[in-house]
Design a binder for these strands. Structure first.
Length: 594
DNA sequence: GCGATGATGAAGCGCCGA
DNA sequence: TCGGCGCTTCATCATCGC
């Protein structure tokens, strides 16, 4: 198994289910003469306009060879189409590849060479996709093959074929980001998958860019009938053509405290059905469109939005995309304190009656400063416990903003790290010791799961895996999923943890040792180095994963980020695509092994 | 160099009144 | 229905002290 197998895994949803031949026929279902060609005219291929500025013949030749086509085919295509119209050349090349009787291995070889040569550029691709375009625009008229190749590399690393990548780049144009290109291909694959369900098979045209951009949900329309009994129907504002909107109240498929409102069944899209089970988490209040993209990538599974204030004494609005069963959920015992006064009883004595908070806001990675609490103390001390309304409003605003609690007369303070641990469902001192600074504790905790909430969702696994579970934990952080499973009483047979922060890996390792786990814990630092080969070895060693958990970085999604709230294209948050990549690889490898 | 501290808006949504 | 307002938000960066 190699990286290129993801090529097939990405096609699995469409090609495999179409029953298409495997003899190099990845494009058998593509209608190369669709009306969409008209659309192409509206979205000129970047390379064409650049070539028109006057690239040399050699450069043109090298360009297509660099894309992975054989010299023979490139010569033939240039001879047949001339040097002016690179659209035609590219289309000819793709057609040759599609109709050629060459074995698939040849195409795999193309993909492999691109991946290998460009692996070192991969991170840069993820981070700098927009900057590529900027530089292009700066040098208007000058052809820059590296930008195109970087996108090609990105897409092939994602597991798409060269042909799919080329077509997507052609259709979406030069201004398309890597994510948009991947989304475009994904849309086509899903469409093929759905067409496989139709009695009459026919070649499926690629979506036109216009259609794709105007109605990204088009490809999923046929799932509508499956969704009629799902939570979506409980949200009348959530039409298929509308972006995903957050439910109010944010209770997901139901709360343990309200059995009447619990949803016990949903129909998952076919490609989403395990094994393995997967569970993805991120901030609910992400920029518009982010959850639509996440949902589309994760097999069109409807996100479950839950505010942890229903599970503990602090709010934590998160979206969860998973394919777990949703019946027979049960909460962790003991039920944690649900109000501030229950969670922090020593604050009751000092809590003024005009501070009506019963829940804390979302716990973040930073805490209020000592100067702030001192300013508040001074503002309050002249009023003997009954400050005027404007002072009350000022204080309450700061309290909500920084999650301050009353620790004395006129005295507020930020939460201590161990209090945060308790509120989030971790054992006391989970993040303490081992050379970890106080700042790092806050940071790690602020980025973690709320254990009780996650455990409620994962509780359905207890009956399914009485003998224990093998877990692939991506972006593990301080081990929220591991702690949740442990507290549920689900034995951890094997845990493969991927976490970039050494501090966090240390925390998980210490917890693992201190709780006398009997299973195996293997940790890795960088998900970007988590290759198909490595995955295959791990899957072979542990006998497959039962659950793939991950909450990719939210830095560029969170409202608190006033500098780089760039959505899924942001430096850190773009790592979501690696969650999808790894999950899809695991699904592919495990489906082959079965 | 590292950790702690303090200053720094804006996006998105719900609510409410016109 | 629409616009104004209030509320919330897994953060980032510059600076300081050790």
């Amino acid at each position: 198994m190699s990286d290129t197998d993801s090529h097939f895994s990405a096609l699995r949803m469409g090609q495999g289910e179409m029953g298409g031949s495997s003899d190099g026929g990845s494009d058998d279902n593509i209608d190369w003469n669709t009306e969409d060609e008209i659309e192409i005219e509206k979205y000129p291929v970047s390379c064409c306009s650049r070539e028109a500025a006057g690239p040399s013949n050699t450069k043109l030749f090298d360009h297509f060879v660099g894309m992975g086509f054989s010299e023979k085919l490139v010569s033939r295509a240039i001879n047949e189409n001339g040097q002016e119209n690179t659209d035609l050349i590219l289309e000819s090349l793709l057609t040759y590849a599609a109709i050629e009787d060459s074995p698939q291995e040849q195409q795999i070889g193309i993909v492999l060479s691109v991946c290998d040569n460009a692996s070192s550029d991969y991170e840069e691709n993820l981070l700098d996709d927009s900057s590529d375009f900027d530089s292009d625009s700066d040098s208007e008229g000058i052809y820059n093959p590296s930008s195109e190749e970087k996108k090609m590399t990105f897409l092939t690393e994602m597991g798409y074929t060269m042909n799919e990548a080329s077509i997507a780049m052609e259709r979406c144009g030069a201004d398309a980001s890597e994510a948009e290109l991947a989304d475009f291909i994904c849309a086509h694959q899903m469409s093929k998958a759905e067409d496989a369900l139709l009695p009459e098979e026919k070649p499926l045209p690629w979506l036109s860019v216009d259609d794709f951009r105007k109605s990204k949900k088009r490809k999923f329309l046929r799932y509508d009938s499956c969704k009629r009994n799902t939570i979506r129907d409980k949200k009348p504002m959530c039409e298929d053509d509308e972006p995903i909107r957050l439910p109010n109240p944010m209770v997901g498929f139901g709360l343990p405290t309200d059995s009447c409102s619990q949803l016990t069944h949903r129909n998952l899209p076919e490609p989403a059905i395990g094994p393995p089970y997967f569970y993805y988490e991120n901030v609910a209040l992400a920029p518009k469109g982010v959850w639509d993209t996440i949902s589309r990538f994760l097999y069109d599974v409807e996100p479950e939005f839950v505010d942890s204030k229903y599970f503990c004494a602090c709010a934590r609005k998160r979206g969860y995309v998973h394919n777990l069963p949703i019946h027979n959920r049960c909460p962790l015992r003991p039920i944690p304190p649900l109000t501030i006064s229950e969670a922090l009883p020593m604050t009751k004595r000092w809590w003024p009656n005009w501070d009506t908070r019963t829940k804390l806001n979302c716990i973040q990675t930073c805490v209020g400063s000592a100067k702030l609490t001192e300013r508040i103390r001074k503002a309050l001390e002249d009023y003997n416990g009954e400050p005027p309304l404007y002072i009350q409003n000022y204080v309450l605003n700061e309290c909500r903003k920084w999650n301050l609690v009353w620790v004395g007369r006129n005295k507020l303070a930020p939460l201590e790290p161990d209090e945060v641990e308790m509120l989030l469902g971790f054992p006391r001192n989970h993040t303490r010791g081992g050379g970890i600074s106080r700042t790092d504790r806050y940071k790690s905790l602020g980025n973690s799961f709320q254990v009780d909430t996650v455990a409620y969702h994962l509780s359905v696994l207890k009956d399914l895996y009485p003998g224990g579970i093998s877990l692939l934990s991506l972006f593990s952080g301080i081990g929220g999923a591991e702690v949740a499973l442990y507290r549920l009483g689900i034995p951890l047979k094997n845990v493969v943890s991927v976490e970039i922060s050494e501090v966090n890996r240390t925390i998980v390792r210490c917890w693992w040792d201190q709780t006398n786990q009997k299973g195996n814990l293997i940790d890795f630092a960088d998900i970007q180095q988590f290759t198909a080969e490595k995955l295959e070895q791990l899957i072979s060693a542990v006998g497959g994963f039962d659950l793939v958990v991950g909450g990719s970085p939210c830095n560029n999604l969170a409202g608190s980020n006033r500098y780089h709230r760039d959505g899924l294209e942001g430096k850190e948050s773009s790592l979501f695509y690696h969650y999808f990549r790894v999950l899809d690889l695991v699904k592919s490898i495990m489906s082959k092994d079965q």
